[in-house]
Write a protein that binds this DNA or RNA. Structure first.
Lengths: 114, 114
DNA sequence: CGTGCTACCATGTGCAGCGAGGTAGTACTC
DNA sequence: GAGTACTACCTCGCTGCACATGGTAGCACG
């Protein structure tokens, strides 16, 4: 419930980063994110994000049969998606730097002044 | 609209970090956060966060008159708040490390010839 | 033919950041 | 003493999105 809030605004870029490395489908992307340290995410979160990014034009998609189960819907980055990923990277860097600086400040006070 | 999502889950800890440095009131906290790099936040965001944290028992509060305007409602950290801030710090570190690692992975496929 | 894995999708809920709008106190000017 | 501006607080309603829940379907093994 804590992480779910932190994920906001990062999930999109995280999914795109995974896809940038290699095209993937929902089930697979979830596993790869889990391995990357984002564990405990429900399927609805992934599929919702994929659909949103697809509708926004950041992802392309194609269907492919599988030997081990139902068909798979693969997603890949479009040019717009790649640009968006770059923007997200710098936005993240800037943001996390600001947070890092803020959290690094030591709590001087302990007793209330007045 | 992009930053608003990133703020989720971080605002609480950011506000607490600012207060840890020195007790503050809404208007003041907003300015201090702006100086820290979080600009463009509306008042409703700050006041909503303060009230939420206060209700949760993370903050204490006391009112004080001011020479330069209406009374000020100061907020300070409770022990629970200080603990929560520490937890938030480590949660943030862990999370931002994971994101950093993920975003650092290079997009291999790019120069892949047709 | 039941159990389990893979793989997809749709619906509903809750939370929180934020826009918009309102109320006061102080202070300066014209 | 009306107008403007800054300080300082509050409330209401909207919206976006992570997530829970629940459903469908293909493959495989016993």
């Amino acid at each position: 419930m804590e992480r779910s809030q932190l994920l906001r605004g990062v999930l999109d870029v995280a999914v795109m980063a995974v896809i940038a490395e290699r095209d993937g489908y929902g089930y697979d992307i979830q596993r790869r994110l889990t391995e990357a340290g984002f564990d405990g995410m429900g399927e609805a979160t992934i599929y919702g994000t994929l659909r949103r990014l697809y509708r926004a034009g950041s992802l392309s998609s194609y269907s492919q049969p599988s030997d081990e189960g139902p068909h798979r819907r693969y997603y890949g980055l479009t040019d717009a998606g790649r640009r968006q990923l770059d923007d997200g990277r710098s936005a993240w860097t800037e943001f996390s730097d600001a947070v890092g600086r803020l959290l690094a400040t030591q709590d001087d006070k302990e007793g209330v002044p007045a």
